[in-house]
């Protein structure tokens, strides 16, 4: 009897402890992010496995490492890849239908030339299925162009090509990604090929002030439909 009363008093005390915890949480600042006004830093996005993309070539970043061996096409369980070999080993057509992709990464795993990788596109939006079928070669070209531009603006004195050679792939120094605000994972706003239809990324970093302009500028995509 006494023990039961004592247990209940202890339980009552534990209720007070719980209230203190939630009360403390109530007063501490929020940890989530107001999405359209603030975005997560691009460095954190490195761990996000978005739709696949081609890696930069070793010499010319716009030239893919792909050797058109068709391993990824065979490995893909969703049959979402189309690779056509050209005159040389390098492919002439590299189509990727994201609407069939299950993001399993089998293509990235099997690629013997390390030509594939996951992109970090978090904000990918599409209004139709056609927008989700992407031309990865055109995407690679546009990304390489963007990278060269950003390197040029970053280091006006040095040659941009050597910088590209030094750091192939999207893993760039975080300082640069922060300074240019256009990380390499982002695709460019103007599509190159008619088949390529991808919404541009939001390049702006976390904006502490709420501004409607960033919301407006997000999914503008005038290429198809």
């Amino acid at each position: 009897m006494l023990k039961e009363i004592w247990d209940n008093l202890k339980g009552l005390y534990s209720l007070g402890v719980g209230m203190a915890i939630t009360g403390r949480y109530l007063l501490s600042p929020v940890e989530t992010i107001h999405y359209p006004r603030q975005v997560v830093a691009d460095e954190i996005m490195e761990s996000f496995r978005g739709p696949i993309q081609l890696t930069f070539g070793p010499k010319d970043p716009a030239q893919s490492r792909c050797i058109s061996c068709q391993m990824c096409v065979k490995a893909c369980p969703g049959h979402c890849l189309t690779v056509t070999k050209g005159e040389t080993k390098s492919p002439v057509v590299w189509l990727y239908d994201f609407s069939y992709c299950c993001l399993c990464g089998a293509c990235v795993e099997t690629c013997p030339a390390s030509a594939l990788e996951f992109s970090h596109k978090v904000y990918l939006v599409a209004k139709s299925r056609a927008e989700l079928s992407m031309d990865l070669l055109a995407d690679l070209k546009s990304r390489a162009l963007k990278k060269a531009e950003s390197v040029k603006s970053e280091l006006p004195g040095s040659a941009p090509t050597t910088q590209n050679l030094a750091a192939p792939g999207p893993k760039d120094s975080p300082v640069k990604a922060e300074a240019t605000k256009t990380p390499l994972a982002n695709s460019d706003p103007e599509p190159k090929a008619p088949t390529e239809a991808r919404p541009p990324k939001k390049a702006a970093k976390a904006d502490p002030l709420p501004s409607d302009a960033t919301i407006e500028s997000r999914p503008k995509n005038g290429s198809d439909q």
């Binding site: 939630t22 949480y25 109530l26 007063l27 501490s28 600042p29 929020v30 940890e31 989530t32 107001h34």
Partner: peptide, 13 residues
């Protein structure tokens, strides 16, 4: 709002 703040999110915004 209180639910949001206790769970450390902004609530209706």
């Amino acid at each position: 709002k209180v639910a949001g703040f206790i769970q450390r999110r902004p609530g209706p915004y």
